[in-house]
Every structure is written in C-alpha cells, then in structure tokens.
Design a protein around this nucleic acid. Structure first.
Lengths: 334, 334
DNA sequence: CTGAAAGCGCTTACAG
DNA sequence: CTGAAAGCGCTTACAG
C-alpha cells in the first residue's frame, strides 16, 4: 500500500525502451512493433503499472467527466434519470460527477462549468441562472430547462401532457376541474398550468380562480391543497383534480381520506410522473408517466454527440408521455 | 468561447511578476506583499483567469474527488444516502463521482479504486469482490459491507432491527410469524434473517421452514412471496410477516389485497427502510426506519477524517433505527 | 518503428 | 517577499 506507484518511466526502464514507446504501446499499440509491445506488456505486468488518468487528461486538455446538476438529490424522482445518464456515460468512458444544486453554494456552482472540472454539463435544474452555465462547456438541459439558455433540450411536452390529464377528467364527465400547480418559479409548473388552461378552453371549460391551488411538488403541499379544497363548499369545489406531481397527489389523497372523503367516489385525482410505488397507494393513482430513464439516456447521448464534435442543432428532443389509467379518477357521479 | 483560456503565465505577465508569485497570491495570499497581491488580483480580473483544477491536482497528487459505488442507481433507496454524502463532501471541497456497479463493467470498477481517479471511496454495494477495493484508496463502507474487507463501516444493526420487527409482531399476539428475506448474496439479508431467528428463539418461537419466503428486495418478489403465502392453507400460514424491504412489503400487500385479503385484519405486515410514500400506501406501512441521510453524512465524514490523515480506527459506526408503527400490523385476532 | 524533448498548467523547495 | 527551475505523470509532434 505504501509502496510507490510505478510510473511510466519505471516501465520504460524495465522494458528497455523510452517512455514515449511505453505510452504508444499502451494507448496506440499499432504504432509499435510486436516485440516491443510484448516487452512493454511484460514490464507493465512486472511493475503492476496503471496509467495515471489525471496526467493523461491534463495532457489531453480534457477531464473525462460530465457533471450533472441536480436540484435536491434526495428526491427519488431523479434517481432513474441519473441511472439513465450513468448507463450511457459509463460505457462511453466518462465519469459522472453529481452536484446537488440545493446544497452547493454559488461558488461551487460556478466551478461546475469549468473546463478543468468536466467536459460537459447536464442541467436538470431549471431555476439556475443562465450565466452560470453559459458559454463555457457543452451543455444539455434535461427535463427542466433554463429560459434564455440556448442549449439542446431533452424533455417531454409538459403542456400537452397536462392536456392529457384534463381530457381524461373531462371525458369522465367532470366539469368543475381543479389544478394543484407546482412552484411558480419552475418552468414545469408554468407549462403544465398553461396546458391545463389550454385544454380546458378547448373543451369549453375554464379554470376557476378558486380551483387553482398553490403547491411546490412536495407531498406536504399536496396536503395543504387538500385542506383548502376541503374548506370550500362541497357543491362548488372541483370534482376532479389534476396535480402537477405524484407526490402532491399522494399528499392530497391521504389528507382528504383522513377527512373521511372517498377517492375516487367523491373526488377524482390525477397525478404526474408515475413515480415508484404510486401504483400501490390506495387507490392506485392515475397519472402521467414520464420516461425517466429514457430522458437521462437521451440527454447523455446528445451531450456525447456534441463532445464528439458534431455541431449540435439546438433543437429539442421531445419524449412521449403516457396517461396511465388506474383507479384514482372515475366517472363523475354528480 | 473560442478565445483561449488564460493561464497563470498570462496573469503573471500582466501583473509583472513570476508565475510562482501568482500561484502564491492565489492559493496562499499571506505569502505575498499587499501590493503584489493587488496587482495579481487586478490581472486576474483583467484576464478572467480561473485556476485549472486538474493541473493543480496533478501537482498535488490528489484528485479532489470521492467515488461512491452504488448498486443500481435507479433504486430510490440510495438517493437520500447520496444526498447525505453530497451534503458533506461539497462543503469540504470534494467532488462526488457516482458509479453504478450494476451497469459498470469489471474494468470500470477496477478503475474506480485508482488514486488517479479519486482520493477515496464510499462503498454502498456489499456484493463487490473485496480485491477490487482493497489497499488502494481510503475506503468506508456504508449500509452494506464486504466480508473480508477491513474498512470502517457505517451501518445500522440489521440483526437488532429485524428483532424489533419480530418483537412487535409477537407483542401483538402473533405466533405464526413469517419472513420474506432479501437475496441470499446480500449481507443485509443474512443479518436480518439471523435477527429474525434470534429474536423468535428469544421469544420461545421459531421460524417454520415454510414461513420463510425468498425475495430479492424488489416489489415484484414481494408479490411472488404473497402468491406462495396465499397458496398455503389459511389455518397454517403465518398471521404476521416481516419483510426485509418496504418494496417487498408493498408488493406483498398489493397482491394479497388483490386476492380479497384484508390487511391488517387478516394478515399483519411489517416492512424495512421507511422509504418515501410508504406512509401513504393503504394501509400505511408499519416499518423499520433507517436514518438514510445520516448514514450518508456519517460515511462521508469518516472518509474525510481518514483523508485528513487520521489513522482511522476500523471500528463500525452503528446508527440507530426506529420501529415506525402505522397500520399494517395489528393484534392477532385468531 | 523509436527516442529526445517540449509541454499540458500548475506548485514548491531552494536561493536570494 | 520573490524568482528560476524542477517536477506532478503523461503525450506527441519532430527527427531519424
């Protein structure tokens, strides 16, 4: 353990060649003769030599790493996305560096877009200031995006996805339809809310002012929305609600149930994301499924594409969503 | 963007000093005079110079990175642990490199323990061969551990934790108690199963052969265990079950409910982990809570301690667990 | 096919 | 307090 690590010079001495030759034998074997190659390999074996990646990277002016900027790593929503990212980056020989934008300070965030830290950036947090990320490293935005940041985006059509939920509620006969929105600073919230209004209008309905509840994607904010809803006159409040996250939908559902209200008999609920376990709450949640692994994979692929030198068109990649019909929303029995 | 990044030499020229002085002004300002420092800072400002971390690291023979080896990044169980790790590593100036041991090949795994890649290692996967990780970098094991790998461990007492669940079932009056185990290759499964047997024995009971169900921690394996349980004669099968993961408990519960069996009236269920949302399944799951964020934080802290040069005692850090009583287990009404 | 030498961008004893 | 020089461990034109 304390024995000094052999360097390329040690291998060279033992093999009786120059360090240049060792380097070539290792990284581009075709360049050296078969005998030399064999001698070098023997010396590598004998010394237990392993290439120092950091030194090679310095020489190559690259880092071999990609950083993913994720808001709140504790949120399990991101684990599948990261998994998708890792599954393409790993085989491509890139290391994945993860930075939690919630716990990282501003200094640390600025350091993230440094070419000496990483070769590229995957941004999963739409609330970051564009300057932090602009013009320093190849970037792709995934799921969320930063207004004013011109970078390829891999995302779903949040507006249309919200429309799917609204259509389902309307199709089920609901006329008073409510929406629990995400935090207003999130581009996702904005897009989904717009989708709600759009689709309601298309169906000849509209979002009543008191049928729009504030939330922040968290379970607890779903609870609070439920309390607002419960406080409204039973004959005037929405009979069907679309919530901008599954977590809020679960919180909402648990809270109304605690108050003796039955789901879906007395109120229909649709969530968003189709996170793990949501098929096992009671009743199983009807929701909009996002292809999270695919979002991660695709984001990583587009980034690699840029790194490969391709002049990336700055077009968006839109991945399909799906309405997953389970039991939390049913026909309006008014 | 295409403008060359300024190097320390550019700053030196503009400030009219040597590169050595620039380096000192930047990394150890006390070493240079106030005027010189000011001149350097001005030049830094003028050029937009930013330190190349990779070069500094090469010189310092360190990397500034810690790698976390996680099995299956898609499993949300790990997100909170990673969050805990990130929250201490970030402020300490370390980057967090994440490697999914399930998608990474053997070569890649071997590269992970390279001093040229990282300064330390946090192992979250107990199924890795010890050799991969032995004697190359400072290591700490978190949650799981590798038999035969002598490294500080941060974990819970899985055996005692399982005992807590068994005690609860026995206290509720159950006598035929079953266990759905995790995969046999996991040290966690082994420890929890041992805890089940121990505690049953202490309470004058034992684990019947046909009351032990095979699982792999996944939701689906919980389902399959439920099918086995359902197939047993109703008057002989366990009335209370402890499952080695919440995911399995949810799968089990959903499956028996689908067969018209009521939880907890007809069968009591206890899970393990207290993952998100498990308080919102129906009925809310009684389970053993692991302090996941704290596990991550503590693992990172012990690793930093080692990196700080402290000759780390190889003792284990045992974090406390907690029985969270909700509604999925109730008194035996035989 | 191979070697000597310069260089990736820093830091740090060593002198002064 | 400051500079010249060596060096972290590689790679790669340039010659031969």
């Amino acid at each position: 353990m304390s024995r000094e690590r052999p360097r390329i010079g040690d291998v060279a001495r033992i093999a009786g060649v120059s360090t240049a030759t060792v380097s070539r034998a290792l990284s581009n074997p075709a360049l050296v003769s078969a005998e030399t190659r064999a001698a070098v390999m023997d010396a590598v074996e004998a010394t237990g030599y392993r290439l120092n990646q950091a030194a090679r990277n310095l020489r190559h002016r690259r880092t071999g790493a990609i950083v993913a900027l994720v808001p709140n790593l504790a949120n399990p929503f991101f684990s599948q996305i990261l998994s998708g990212i890792a599954s393409v980056l790993g085989p491509a020989g890139y290391n994945l560096l993860i930075v939690d934008t919630w716990t990282a300070g501003a200094d640390r965030l600025r350091d993230c877009a440094e070419p000496s830290l990483a070769d590229g950036l995957i941004v999963l947090d739409g609330t970051l200031p564009a300057e932090i990320v602009t013009g320093r490293l190849p970037v792709v935005e995934a799921c969320e995006w930063i207004n004013g940041l011109a970078a390829p985006r891999v995302k779903i059509d949040n507006r249309a996805a919200a429309g799917l939920a609204i259509d389902h509620l309307v199709d089920l006969g609901h006329r008073r339809i409510g929406h629990v929105a995400g935090p207003p600073e999130s581009v996702l919230s904005v897009a989904r809310l717009a989708g709600v209004r759009d689709r309601l209008a298309m169906r000849g309905l509209s979002l009543a002012e008191d049928a729009l509840y504030a939330g922040d994607f968290s379970l607890d904010s779903g609870r609070r929305a439920a309390l607002s809803w419960i406080a409204q006159p039973a004959d005037l409040r929405p009979t069907g609600l679309f919530l901008a996250s599954d977590a809020m939908a679960c919180g909402f559902m648990a809270e109304v149930q605690r108050h003796g209200i039955r789901v879906p008999e007395q109120v229909s609920i649709i969530g968003f994301d189709d996170i793990e376990l949501v098929s096992h709450v009671s009743p199983p949640l009807t929701t909009i499924r996002q292809p999270r692994t695919a979002l991660g994979r695709m984001a990583a692929e587009r980034l690699l594409h840029q790194l490969g030198g391709a002049e990336e068109a700055e077009s968006d990649t839109i991945l399909p969503v799906e309405l997953v019909i389970r039991s939390s929303a049913t026909v309006f029995a008014g």
